[in-house]
Design a protein around this nucleic acid. Structure first.
Lengths: 463, 463
DNA sequence: CTATTTGTTTATGAACATTTC
DNA sequence: CGAAATGTTCATAAACAAATA
């Protein structure tokens, strides 16, 4: 029996010892999972400290540690030494953003890529279909890309400041696929990766799937704070870092060059593996005056540089370029064979032809114009505030006040006919007081539709 | 200090306590890894029992358990209660089979798919390229397949005995991709999956990457033994089972229908998740007289059925169909979004058109003829023995004697100009006394080349 | 600024299960 | 069949580390 009775003491969770079977740590973990999943324990709830619960249940406190750990790894709870253990903000549901279209209503949630430009791709597909070597694209050969495709890819990313050779690049099936490969190849379950406090929600889910823990690092308008990264690195064993320097998703922050240098120093010092998702390079390199270079250049031996063509050229052709240091090559290639076997040579060939013909650059110009117009429209409804972020971003990050229940807000807005995503979806760790909405500008079929959506949103928020 | 001195006692591994730092379990694990990797401890070596090593190092024996466990999870060693702990057969190198072509020599290693048939695909690509709706294939929509593509897919697999609806199928990027998705969606690190003793080596590597442990189950000429599966299930907590019933890779065993029924009963009883890789359905359903149905039909609620078109239709177009019980749907879709975002609609459309036009069936007929011829040639050189396995298999499983050093054999044969894979590559667990070679019949450009390769092999083996 | 609260890591002892002889 | 060998699992104690009042 417990030494003390806690009946008079407020404890947020009092599991019934009767319900527990041996082994206790597993039984307790599944009971906790159940109580979180069925809503009995709400997100944000502080759980009893390990020692207190141990006392209550008359168990050794490290048994509680183990039970909590199981739930933490599943992403149900998170713990802060000194403060306590809390139910995670996204414990109850998946934050995966799928491309499933809304059946009706205006989609300002999922970020598409101004699909109007796809008509320019059809001609090139026909060109490739009539190539004499078409049959050569249909076998198992060249799993990571045919040499001339890699050459075109290298040429493409040279425009973004990357210098690499054929041995250092692989063509894979889109950025998300590249991220899966990088995580599978270079990390183990239980490893930790530093990310921005708000980051790409599918990366959060992917990390969860691979049982990799994310360590949120605060940032400002120039990007992640090096001191904060240094602090975490010196305290815990961090293995990698995920960044989108050209335009972070969802915050639209572009990491400034001085900040890149500072961050690179910390990354080098602690030997972190950098995963640089540069999907927005085409909106930044050579366009934004402050832009100098990708971080890959600063840390070529310990980085994976990922450059997808989904946003910049064509979303339906699943192609991304993956560049890596020589030391990482073997592991990454093995992961590619294990996860993909190969990427469609036909898709890669169409992208190649788009690049070589100059059509890809035309598409990009058009997309930039569309992005400019969409942003102009946005700022009419939600005027510029300070630290506005990337001017050509395909989405915007709108601060909102007092909308604490993320899921209710999303549902409410859906009833008003628009889909947007609440900042809680993008949280890599604990909750924050500030709340935002991510507003996709590149998904509606027309700008008129975009305007209608923004108008509805503005009216709803000013209520 | 240790109570007894073991200097007089033969111990296969005597790590120097001086080299260990705290924490001991990690330090010991990395020392062990090092000694295995640099060849100091050869594959098959029996390590000292936990208690003995503990005594020697003057540590508690569960500290040794933990160190051994780390190396076991990495696939470096394996343990059998009662017998001891051993260095794993594939500890030192990766067994991933890549599609990288041999620069010279005859490839009887990697199993391609009689790529001669690809010329039939080029016409269909041109047809699709000229479709009026081509542009609709280039956006983010329908990540798991467009409805008419799914309809064609359902029709295709109906020929193999699968009845399912649009909600139960997804189009993904090849069988290997489907396996990644299934493992990521439905299993956790540390989970255990039963497999044949010899199984698809990229599945072994994939499982390793996801830190899923494989439990080898013996079989006979009718497939895996239900009693052995039952035994393992009642002893340890097994979560899933991986089978290739139509023609196992690499053994060419087709699971007979009575055996499927027996296995299904055990699987149902222990609530295992079945992953059924039916890539060879096109060589079996409606062709082999004994064939009745896929195992998915026996266990529709707890199975994932995977049917790739790489071997049957075209290898370069990365398409596989994935069918799943309703209970698994949500998890699998989420994994698809996280790993792939979507599969190329263009590739899927070409496969769809191949199916609808009847061209796919023509290709299959041709491949079956080619397989027949290739097998006839093979049996001229290596005459039929009993329990020969699937008659139309794209590869054969050749018993060899006295060739214990797998890697040396492979290297030797490569020097003779042919590539084959030794059975050790396909081992899901401990070593076995019998040794085999897997001989791919579907990779050489011509049958003449195949004959040359087989001749070289025969001469080499009869030396 | 130090004491307290709270979570983390490591090593250990005991009970257990399976295989071998 | 029973004893010995061997690996597995669980709960515990102690030392540690970070955050907070």
């Amino acid at each position: 029996m417990p030494v003390n009775s806690f009946d008079h003491y407020p404890m947020s969770w009092k599991p019934d010892k009767q319900e527990l079977n041996r082994p206790f740590y597993k039984s307790l973990a599944s009971l906790l999972e159940q109580h979180i999943t069925n809503g009995y324990l709400a997100p944000g709830t502080k759980l009893p400290p390990q020692r207190e619960l141990a006392d209550f249940l008359d168990l050794n406190f490290t048994t509680i540690t183990r039970a909590y750990k199981i739930c933490e790894v599943k992403g149900l709870i998170y713990a802060i030494t000194g403060s306590g253990t809390f139910v995670a903000p996204n414990a109850t549901r998946s934050i995966t953003i799928s491309t499933d279209k809304m059946s009706n209503g205006i989609d300002l949630g999922f970020v598409a890529s101004f699909e109007q430009t796809n008509s320019a791709v059809t001609d090139i597909i026909r060109t490739v279909a009539n190539k004499s070597y078409l049959e050569q694209l249909l076998n198992y050969n060249d799993p990571t890309g045919i040499p001339h495709q890699k050459a075109a890819a290298l040429n493409w990313i040279k425009g973004f400041g990357i210098q690499a050779n054929q041995e250092q690049i692989a063509i894979v099936s889109g950025a998300q696929n590249a991220l899966s490969i990088a995580l599978a190849a270079l990390f183990e379950p239980g490893n930790k990766i530093a990310t921005d406090l708000y980051t790409y929600s599918n990366f959060i889910e992917l990390a969860k799937m691979f049982h990799i823990q994310l360590v949120p690092i605060p940032g400002d308008q120039f990007g992640m704070l090096p001191d904060e990264l240094e602090k975490q690195c010196s305290q815990i064993n961090i293995h990698g870092i995920f960044l989108m320097p050209s335009c972070s998703n969802p915050t639209t922050v572009m990491i400034s060059d001085f900040r890149k240098q500072e961050l690179a120093e910390v990354i080098r010092k602690h030997r972190l593996l950098l995963i640089e998702d540069d999907i927005h390079a085409f909106l930044t390199a050579g366009i934004i005056s402050d832009y100098q270079q990708p971080m890959f250049n600063l840390l070529p031996e310990q980085s994976v540089y990922i450059c997808s063509t989904s946003k910049s050229i064509c979303s339906g052709l699943r192609v991304a370029f993956m560049v890596f240091g020589d030391a990482l090559r073997e592991k990454i290639l093995r992961a590619i064979f294990n996860i993909n076997v190969k990427t469609s040579s036909f898709d890669a060939e169409v992208i190649t032809e788009l690049i070589l013909s100059g059509k890809a650059h035309e598409i990009i110009s058009f997309k930039k114009q569309l992005a400019q117009t969409a942003n102009d429209i946005y700022f009419e409804y939600f005027p510029l505030r300070k630290n506005a972020g990337h001017p050509l971003s395909f989405y915007r990050w709108l601060p909102i006040d007092g909308q604490n229940d993320a899921w209710k807000l999303e549902t409410d807005l859906k009833e008003h006919g628009i889909r947007v995503f609440h900042s809680d979806r993008f949280l890599s760790g604990q909750t924050t007081p500030e709340k935002y909405l991510r507003i996709a500008l590149s998904t509606t079929n027309t700008f008129t539709e975009l305007e209608i959506g923004l108008k509805i949103l503005k009216e709803y928020l000013s209520c």
